[in-house]
Deep mutational scan, measured.
Amino acid sequence: FLTKYFNKQPYPTRREIEKLAASLWLWKSDIASHFSNKRKK
């Protein structure tokens, strides 16, 4: 799911990160680090 979202929006806003974190029961920092790691590849 996160990879699909990343393909659409590689630079999510803070609000989008909060929404993703809430819906996936993850920490915002986990979401942010996932996106930054994907951008590095």
Rank of each mutant, 00 (worst) to 15 (best):
F6Q: 00
N7T: 05
L26E: 14
Q9P: 01
L2Q: 01
W27A: 10
K19L: 01
N37V: 09
K40E: 04
L2D: 00
R15D: 04
H34Y: 07
L2V: 03
W25G: 13
N37H: 10
R39G: 06
E18L: 02
R15L: 06
W27K: 13
A22H: 11
R15F: 02
E16K: 14
K8H: 00
S29Y: 03
K28W: 14
R14V: 03
L24M: 15
S29W: 04
L20V: 11
A21P: 04
Q9C: 11
K8M: 01
N37Y: 12
S33H: 12
K40C: 09
R14P: 03
K4N: 02
S36I: 09
E16R: 13
F1L: 00
K41E: 09
T13Q: 09
K38C: 06
A22F: 01
S29H: 14
S23A: 07
W25Q: 13
I31Q: 08
Y11S: 15
N7M: 01
L20K: 13
F6M: 06
N37K: 14
D30M: 10
T13G: 15
K8V: 00
W27E: 01
S23K: 15
K40T: 12
S23L: 06
L20N: 07
I17R: 04
S33D: 04
S33Q: 11
N7D: 11
R15I: 05
K8T: 00
K41G: 08
R15G: 09
N7G: 03
A21T: 08
D30W: 12
I17D: 01
I17T: 01
L26F: 13
N37R: 10
K19S: 02
K4T: 00
P12W: 05
P10C: 12
K4E: 00
K8P: 00
I31R: 06
I31K: 04
K8E: 01
W27D: 05
A32R: 13
S36T: 13
T13I: 14
R14Q: 04
L20M: 15
K38Y: 02
K8A: 00
F1W: 02
A22N: 11
K41N: 07
E18M: 14
N37P: 09
Y11K: 14
Y5I: 09
K8S: 00
S33E: 07
S23Y: 03
L20C: 14
F35A: 08
P10S: 13
